[in-house]
């Protein structure tokens, strides 16, 4: 009986130590993976209305409005994106599709309705701007966490939320030299990301402006990206968000690129 008690105590101590490790000493890589999953892979699919406000250095505003559909082929792996533009007028009715590959290059297609043209677009440069905004293609669909080496540099508090501070350095030369992320310990969403160049100057800053619960998923509904070199920033607001609506792969084909799935478009 005594031996039994001893064993139990030992087991409990062991268990509690294990738990402590997962909570407090989760590796930086694991945190970034979890963050990536929480941010880009919520649910199996998602539909949202998106409004982008592009603000130039002079304060001049431009707007983009589109419907965005997302389907995860596998959690943390391949994804499909469909974007149907509504504003501005010159790109209205244009649809755009991405098959995001976690390994090779993404595939992108555009449909230009005025001339009934379906065209693949070369997708070599993931850091190029998404529709002229301060967000890059990679910012929209997610930079895979394995592309960077992550180090946890500490813990901190941001707007009353406990955060991990993670430094990420690209494994291969990229558009930034270092990224410092402040990851919310409760939701794993990045609350702030700071991008630095080789000289150590901050070149871009990402901020989570609004986070809400949507169908049980902690969702960033408004986000902001500042380009400190250009003096411009872009605010993206998501509305009418729905998760797990049952999107099918068939939807992310040329057929639907030409014939937008109206039931998901408001």
């Amino acid at each position: 009986m005594k031996g039994m008690m001893k064993l139990l105590v030992l087991a409990l101590i062991g268990l509690s130590m294990l738990a402590a490790t997962t909570n407090a000493q989760m590796s930086a890589e694991e945190i970034m993976k979890k963050s990536h999953m929480a941010y880009y892979y919520a649910g199996d699919d998602g539909v949202a209305e998106v409004k982008m406000t592009l603000v130039g250095k002079s304060g001049k505003e431009r707007e983009r409005e589109f419907t965005m559909l997302r389907l995860d082929n596998e959690d943390g792996g391949n994804q499909m994106y469909y974007t149907y533009f509504k504003k501005p007028s010159d790109v209205a009715r244009t649809s755009f599709m991405v098959h995001k590959s976690s390994e090779g290059n993404d595939k992108r297609w555009i449909y230009v309705p005025a001339i009934d043209l379906v065209r693949p677009i070369s997708a070599d440069d993931k850091s190029s701007s998404f529709v002229g905004s301060d967000f890059s293609y990679e910012d929209v669909s997610g930079r895979h966490w394995t592309n960077d080496t992550h180090t946890q540099t500490g813990e901190s508090e941001l707007d009353g939320k406990k955060v991990w501070v993670i430094e990420s350095v690209p494994k291969q030369e990229d558009s930034f030299a270092k990224k410092v992320s402040y990851i919310d310990q409760a939701s794993f969403l990045p609350l702030t990301e700071e991008y630095f160049d080789k000289k150590g100057e901050m070149i871009r800053r990402f901020t989570a402006v609004e986070i809400k619960d949507v169908d049980g998923f902690t969702t960033m509904t408004t986000r902001k990206m500042e380009n400190l070199e250009k003096g411009s920033h872009t605010i993206v607001a998501f509305s009418s968000i729905d998760y797990n609506v049952g999107l099918e792969e068939d939807l992310f084909t040329e057929r639907y690129l030409k014939n937008p799935p109206r039931k998901y478009i408001q």
Binding site: N105, P120, I121, D124
Partner: peptide, 9 residues
């Protein structure tokens, strides 16, 4: 025939 290959289209 058209598609993405060799880093382009």
């Amino acid at each position: 025939l058209r598609g993405a290959t060799l880093g382009g289209i």
